[in-house]
Every structure is written in C-alpha cells, then in structure tokens.
C-alpha cells in the first residue's frame, strides 16, 4: 500500500474523476479549516464544547463508538470527538490537510484518531463498520453527492446514525452574491464577510475565504432532495437543522414532523445565521436495525 510521507495510508484510486482531482489540489493548498496557530488539544476541546451542535453530538455519542468523518479536512471535529474509548477515522481527498491533522495528532499523542487518504466513492472499509458517519460540508464538493451518500450508507452499521451537512440552495443566496463580487474584489471579499472577521489567525481567514468564495466546485441542495435520498436508501429521518431543532430535545431524537414547506425553506435566504455561516443545513438519519 502506498503511504503519504510514511505517515498516512493512501487509498485514493489511481485514476480519480476530474472533480476529485480538482478538489484534492485545491484543499492541499488551503488546508481547510486550518488550525488557529494551535499548540495543543485544549482549544479544540473548548471550541467543540462551546459549539451547540458539536457539544450535543458529543454528549449523545457512546464513549466506545466507532466514528467516521468523511472529508475531515484538517480534522478538528474528528479530533474533538476522539476522546474516551472512541475510535475515530477521518478520511479526506487532500493529503495536505491530512498531514496537518496527523501532525497535530502526533504532537498531542492522540491515540483514538486515524487519518487516511481516500475518496468517498472507494472507501477502504467493509460494509456496516461505523456507529456514526459525519460528513459535514463535503458531499457538495463531489461530482455525484447522491452516489457519495449511498457509499456512506454502506459503511454504516444497522442502528447507526448519519449526520449530513450540505449547502442550502436558498440559505446560500447571499454567499452566491459574494462569490460574484469576489471575482472583482479577490481576497478582499473577506472584508465584507462577517465570519471572516471573527476568525483569529491569518491562516484560518484565508482558508475560509478561499473555501467559500473561490471553490472550484460546489453544488447546493434542499431538504426535500435529501429526504428523497433517504427514502431511496432506506434511511429513517431523524432530525433537520436548523429547521426542527429545539434545545432541550436530543439531537438524535426522531422528529415527528418530517416535511418542510417550500416557504419555510425559502425564508432561510433571509436568515442572518445562515447568511453568516454560508447557508448550511444538517440532516440526521438512522439506518434501521
């Protein structure tokens, strides 16, 4: 098996599709989401705990669960979740990002995390391996998100959960506008972006601006579309964020309401949170036992 710099096992196929190739070289360069000039685990932990989504995820996952992060990038979420006796695998198409993740893992002697290079269509795992698969903001950068979704379902254990984060067609309206502007303003577009202003390090700011406004390939989706994928792959619907999320309920508690009206969906175009974070929705599903 080939290795990347003797550190990371390389399972990427010899001939990749053009989209994957493009994305690999793009993320090799920008290394998203990048580290904040971090020295140790402590900020990874405190950020994970202060984010309402990731802290609730953390609270609800068993301490010996087997987890896969698809498109983990530089791996902050995988690293955060990899505590207790959990086993967390992170795959990504970008060797550059993985090297950064693995360097951090090694520096901090973290033993629960495994990073390897692979594309989502040809993952080196046998079917029904993981209790939870998280793919947060990744499938919209592949050439066939639905097919990628089906590949994920394949490695999920019966009774296991999937958390799927995608760009939202309407929630992203303002970002589309900024992407247009970016062709004129170049890197300076960051000055017009709220989230960029909140990032502390230069590395992180640049990675975010490039990821959001200069991405070589992205698609956007709607909950209705994802529901259809779920039905086709026989995945039970559990939760949809931000639409159905109420604090006080578990993330993994099945919501009875399933359908989203087109109007409610359109309203996301005006939602400030959505505009700031680049228009994003997360669907949670469960593979039936």
């Amino acid at each position: 098996m080939p290795w990347i710099e003797d550190k990371i096992p390389d399972f990427t196929p010899e001939f990749m599709d053009p989209t994957s190739l493009k994305m690999a070289s793009f993320y090799d360069e920008i290394k998203f989401p990048n580290f904040d000039g971090l020295e140790n685990y402590s900020p990874i932990y405190s950020k994970g705990r202060s984010n309402t989504f990731t802290s609730r995820l953390d609270d609800e996952i068993r301490w010996n669960a087997k987890i896969l992060g698809v498109g983990c990038g530089t791996g902050p979420l995988s690293l955060f979740l990899g505590r207790g006796d959990r086993e967390v695998h992170g795959i990504d198409i970008s060797a550059g990002s993985l090297l950064m993740a693995d360097e951090f893992r090694e520096l901090n002697k973290l033993e629960n995390n495994f990073f390897l290079a692979s594309d989502v269509f040809n993952m080196p795992y046998s079917k029904e391996t993981f209790d939870l698969v998280i793919s947060n903001g990744v499938l919209h950068h592949t050439m066939n998100p639905k097919k990628a979704f089906e590949a994920i379902v394949n490695v999920l254990k019966p009774g296991g959960f999937i958390a799927l984060g995608l760009y939202h067609k309407y929630g992203r309206a303002v970002t589309f506008l900024k992407q247009r502007l970016a062709t004129i303003l170049d890197q300076k577009i960051g000055l017009l972006d709220y989230h960029t202003g909140n990032l502390k390090s230069e590395g992180k700011r640049e990675a975010w601006v490039r990821d959001q406004f200069f991405n070589p390939h992205e698609s956007s989706h709607t909950p209705q579309e994802v529901f259809r994928w779920f039905t086709d792959a026989n995945i039970e619907f559990v939760n949809l964020l931000p639409h159905f999320d109420q604090p006080g309920f578990l993330l993994s508690e099945t919501r009875h309401k399933f359908d989203v009206s087109r109007l409610a969906d359109l309203c996301l175009a005006l939602d400030l949170q959505q505009i700031r974070e680049g228009g994003f929705f997360i669907t949670l599903g469960k593979k039936p036992l």
Binding site: E39, N40, Y41, S42, Y45, S46, N108, K109
Partner: peptide
C-alpha cells in the same frame, strides 16, 4: 493530565 484528562492549557 492537562492534555488528555482536563483538556486545558499545557
């Protein structure tokens, strides 16, 4: 203890 138990600054 700082890094793997308390998750705090080294």
């Amino acid at each position: 203890l700082n890094m793997k138990i308390k998750y705090r600054e080294s």
